[in-house]
């Protein structure tokens, strides 16, 4: 059995932050900034390819936040609003403000994809979009005045992006959707047909990432019911202990095993990308810990497709983030090679 290592969310922006700042201050041209963006994207993709990461991410190096590319013109009807904390992280985003019916002017991922394809074959690349529920929950609606109509339109425009990426042959698309983790049962019932339409025809290539919340069984069951085949739950110590005992790897591993041992027959058919390396703490996991966690998961009968970080690596310093990717790749390679 082969175990994939992959990278969820974005990568630290590193030196690109300084270039972007210089461009905003008029100290360098946009052309020079874009050349640096291209170079940094290439560097990050080549780094992953060298390690055997599959599929690779472009690191979302031009995304200021989860919604910025949409609210800067790609999505008619959405503007950038006030600055708000992003879940329970010391990171902030501009809240999308919805002022008119949403319409996608152009696929957000087209420029990203063009750049990424200079370095990786489409099938080796993982696209990225925010999830409909997260988009809705983290926005301010001044137009729809009906939660149902709002999420329906958001899901439709995001599907256009999803469809664009899959049409270009990407290996997978990560749908970053933490807000699903706290959707009520009634809300999940409402969302079911909307998500079924959202992923229809793309069920095998759509991964739903659920960072920052320990997986809620009802949500995972719901995703299986919707028809999704791959889910990326957050099994990090920070999330398990809600930020308390963030270095408790043994306790987290035991909790992961307990959680996976109680999968329903339907969720037992789903593929799991286990979010094991903690994107919210600098202590670097041992490769042996990752392998032990995979062993524990496999013993429960869960279909483990791969290992990843638990959320966006942009919450870490670049040097630590890269170490964590190396550990993931090393663990996946040695596990696949039979090292237990």
């Amino acid at each position: 059995m082969t175990l994939q290592a992959t990278v969820l969310g974005g990568s630290p922006h590193g030196v690109l932050m300084k270039y972007r700042q210089m461009m905003h201050e008029g100290k360098i041209s946009e052309e020079k900034y874009l050349a640096k963006l291209e170079a940094q994207t290439g560097k990050f993709i080549r780094f992953q390819l060298r390690l055997g990461v599959n599929p690779v991410s472009d690191g979302l190096l031009e995304w200021d936040d989860l919604f910025a590319p949409y609210c800067r013109g790609a999505l008619a009807g959405a503007e950038r609003g006030s600055l708000i904390r992003f879940f329970d992280n010391n990171v902030y985003y501009r809240r999308p403000v919805i002022t008119a019916k949403l319409r996608l002017n152009s696929p957000v991922s087209s420029s990203t994809l063009m750049r990424a394809l200079n370095y990786a074959a489409p099938g080796r690349f993982k696209g990225f979009i925010p999830g409909p529920e997260t988009f809705v929950r983290l926005s301010e609606d001044k137009y729809y005045q009906s939660a149902d109509a709002f999420v329906l339109d958001v899901a439709q425009v995001l599907r256009e992006d999803l469809s664009y990426l899959i049409g270009k042959g990407v290996g997978a698309v990560e749908v970053f959707d933490p807000s699903l983790s706290y959707a009520s049962s009634e809300r999940l019932t409402l969302l079911k047909p909307i998500y079924q339409d959202f992923i229809r025809g793309f069920e095998d290539k759509t991964w739903i990432a659920l960072p920052y919340f320990w997986p809620r069984r009802e949500v995972i069951d719901w995703l299986a019911d919707v028809g999704l085949t791959t889910v990326c739950p957050d099994f990090s110590p920070t999330t398990f202990h809600s930020g308390d005992n963030v270095n408790d790897f043994l306790g987290t591993l035991a909790a992961l095993k307990r959680w996976l041992s109680e999968l329903s027959p339907l969720t037992r058919q789903m593929g799991f990308i286990l979010g094991l390396t903690d994107s919210r703490n600098t202590l670097v996991e041992q490769a042996s810990y990752i392998r032990d966690a995979v062993d524990a998961a496999v013993e429960t009968g869960a279909k483990v497709r791969g290992v990843s970080n638990n959320g966006t690596l942009d919450l870490l310093p670049e040097s630590v983030a890269f170490k964590k990717i190396r550990v993931l790749a090393k663990a996946a390679k040695s596990w696949s090679g039979g090292e237990r």
Binding site: P12, H13, M17, K18, R20, Q21, H24, D64, D65, L83, N90, V91, Y92, Y93, R94, T282, D314, L315, L316, P317, E318, S319, V320
Partner: peptide
């Protein structure tokens, strides 16, 4: 360990 982004281009050495 190095800079971490907080929003936009604002960052600190966390």
């Amino acid at each position: 360990y190095g800079d971490v982004r907080v929003w936009g281009t604002a960052h600190y050495n966390k």
